[in-house]
Design a protein around this nucleic acid. Structure first.
Lengths: 131, 131
DNA sequence: CGGGATCCATACTGATACTG
DNA sequence: CAGTATCAGTATGGATCCCG
């Protein structure tokens, strides 16, 4: 299996200064790979979800981080937020076209981790001594 | 491009409780998608690097986080650390087989972000009002 | 139900000093 | 060169209460 179209990514990032501390790539990468960003994107990868659904599906997320992460992804144009004025109020979230494009690349990674996590945790040995 | 082999990832994660707060998948995912983990894995994706190289390539990382993140990835069996006893001392890091398997899935994601980051940042609009 | 505002604990960072 | 150790400042996340 070749990765010929990817081997120059490092060169691209270095050459264009893309790894520089404050570059757009780093910023967007932090949003997407944030602790909760990944999980929310996986949750929304199949179908739209309501606030309460996301809260239940993404186990352990606080309301603050749910709101904050969703808003960041919304501003980045990855997630769409739709308010239905009703009583009680209803708010749905779903992936934009850009978001669907993104999760096509995110899901294989998460899938890989899900497949290897048990093996990784089970096989841990202490790190070699530093001295 | 089909994603038929991935559409059930959410079901898998929910069904197996893989999204549970303390599951191995979440733990390993946090290591890999950590702020510096992603960048270090990209840096090591092409070739082995020495400590000092990594420090320069990954702009802005502190020595503390460099050591901490590398050790986490080492313990997870993703990065290998090789000490060459010499004066001055030399330490090289490279990806294990598992690590190379991982970055095959990570690079497309980072590549996507690098391709879309400028567009994302340029196109930002304020999030819709919450009220 | 879907948040906003506030306060607090923790994690991370940066600087410095020291070691083999 | 490749780290470790420590301390202080800051950003991030969590818990709680409140509101439309």
């Amino acid at each position: 299996m070749t990765v010929s179209n990817e081997v120059s990514l490092l060169d691209r990032m270095l050459g264009d200064g893309l790894l520089a501390s404050a570059c757009p790539t780093r910023e967007v990468l932090d949003h997407i790979t944030s602790r909760w960003g990944v999980l929310l994107l996986v949750a929304l990868s199949e179908r739209p979800m309501r606030w309460g659904e996301l809260r239940r599906v993404v186990d352990g997320i606080s309301e603050k981080m749910l709101a904050q992460t969703l808003r960041t992804l919304e501003v980045d144009g990855i997630v769409h937020r739709e308010v239905t004025p009703s009583v009680p109020p209803r708010v749905d979230y779903w992936l934009t076209d850009r978001g669907r494009s993104l999760v096509q690349h995110l899901l294989p990674l998460v899938s890989w981790v899900a497949d290897h996590a048990d093996e990784i945790v089970a096989g841990r040995r202490p790190a070699a001594s530093r001295t």
